[in-house]
């Protein structure tokens, strides 16, 4: 992850290597420095095995989410950023509504970016901490496959835990 600072790199390399990431949802394209994009293990594997063309198509991730992912990677590719700076920047990236966070966690998982997966998962957990299970079910898009009787029975097993919830 640690890469040489920009200026040192420019001194020897005539041109900075870039990659183009393309969202296959809305065809938005992002040109990023290679060392930024390589924080994604998925992209790194593609580049390492010469599977990456000029444009790397990213399925199932929208431009909006891809922009957040790239912002995260840029922050973490900056060698002069302090731990505190990164913590603040991470908090800014995940200060989103729950649905955006779920898209972001899917993207972090698909692109295999461990740090982003960690902060996003924690933020989602913090966001659902005070919600009743019906809301959580809706947020995660889970179909309720219990019959009303079954659900009541499961609830009755730990009825005390629902205090304060509807």
């Amino acid at each position: 992850m640690a890469s040489a600072p920009e200026n040192e790199k420019n001194a020897s390399a005539p041109e900075k290597k870039t990659l183009t990431l393309k969202s296959m949802i809305n065809n938005e394209e992002f040109v990023v420095d290679e060392h930024v994009a390589l924080q994604s293990v998925t992209i790194k594997n593609m580049v390492d095995s010469d599977c990456a063309g000029d444009v790397i198509p990213v399925p199932t991730i929208s431009g909006e989410i891809l922009a957040l992912v790239i912002e995260y990677c840029k922050n973490h590719a900056n060698p002069s950023a302090s731990e505190d700076d990164l913590k603040k920047a991470d908090a800014g990236i995940v200060a989103k509504d729950i649905y955006t966070l779920i898209d972001l966690v899917l993207a972090a998982n698909f692109l295999d970016i461990k740090g982003l997966l960690e902060v996003t998962s924690q933020k989602i957990a913090d966001s659902i901490k005070d919600l009743p299970h019906q809301d959580v079910r809706e947020i995660f898009g889970v179909e309720n496959d219990y019959t009303p009787e079954e659900e009541a029975a499961v609830r009755a097993e730990h009825d005390w835990a629902f205090e304060g919830f509807p």
Partner: peptide, 19 residues
């Protein structure tokens, strides 16, 4: 991974989400 960050009392409620 997300659910493993929650307290037990909430997880007991979330057993009601689905089978």
């Amino acid at each position: 991974d997300i659910l493993s960050r929650l307290p037990v009392s909430l997880l007991l409620c979330l057993r009601c989400v689905s089978v």
